[in-house]
Design a protein around this nucleic acid. Structure first.
Length: 257
DNA sequence: ATGGTGGCTGGGCCA
């Protein structure tokens, strides 16, 4: 089972690239972030034509997350689980695909360390942990993937000296991410690759992609039972090239049955 | 060079 995550930065603008990528790579599940589409404007028919069921939590203009699947799409839950303070924005959707509970997450950016949006980011990550505690156990097959807007370690950014007093690398948000992992999840990618310089996002500005100025902020956090069955991972840098790319590349894991 | 690019829109915000 091939499970991908991709911040598409507007599914309206990116649909041709997404369709071509789905045809080429044929993932079983794709979690998308930043669809930037109102709920009812999701291209369900175009996605169905490629063999996928769709579940979307849309907002329009900003945010919006989706899960599309060839291996079933059940127990769809928009937002955090009932009983948890609901997010006013469309940033998480959860479903069961092929027996695995999968969440597609778009963690708030934070903007600046002294900005209210940064507090919102920390709160959001706290609620993500509550969400997992409410709906599953570490013994289940669980994948929490998406755009976390956090580089877990210094090796996940091109030059940490450029990030003093900046979001994406600060201690509190890394601790909030660790609290999510402490549910019983591991960063699947790092079981396969130790290298620095492996990124999933590059700024559109200033030729960042060609300079290798990126960050690894998109990944899969997986429970132990999934981790033990994961045999391969990749960041598809080719999808960041060419005409009208997203600023994020898709990230994939392969999970054996 | 305190900028740059691209998405939302329809001027300015967001990433």
């Amino acid at each position: 089972m091939l499970i991908a995550t991709w911040n598409v930065n507007s599914l309206k603008a990116r649909l041709p690239r997404v369709e071509a990528w789905l045809q080429e790579v044929q993932p079983d599940v794709l979690c998308m972030q930043e669809t930037k589409l109102k709920q009812d404007l999701f291209p369900t028919d175009a996605i169905a034509a490629l063999g996928y069921e769709s579940a979307h939590f849309g907002q329009g203009q900003w945010n919006g997350v989706a899960i599309i699947s060839k291996v079933g799409l059940e127990n769809v839950m928009q937002n955090f689980a009932p009983g948890i303070e609901q997010d006013e924005e469309a940033r998480i959707i959860t479903a069961t695909c092929g027996g695995i509970q999968i969440s597609s997450c778009y963690v708030p950016n934070g903007r600046e360390l002294d900005h209210d949006h940064y507090k919102y980011k920390l709160s959001w990550l706290g609620r993500l942990r509550q969400h997992l505690d409410a709906i599953c156990t570490p013994a289940d097959d669980v994948v929490v993937c998406g755009d976390f807007n956090i580089a877990p370690e210094d090796r996940d950014v091109w030059d940490v000296t450029q990030f003093e007093n900046a979001t994406h690398v600060s201690v509190p948000e890394r601790e909030a991410l660790a609290n999510v992992r402490d549910f019983g999840l591991t960063d699947s990618f790092r079981r396969f690759y130790d290298d620095a310089g492996l990124y999933s996002w590059w700024d559109y500005r200033g030729g960042s992609f060609h300079k290798g100025h990126g960050m690894r902020i998109d990944y899969h956090l997986v429970s132990q039972s999934v981790d033990e069955r994961t045999t391969w991972t990749a960041i598809d840098r080719n999808a960041r090239k060419g005409e009208s790319p997203s600023d994020h590349a898709p990230v994939l894991i392969r999970v054996d049955d």
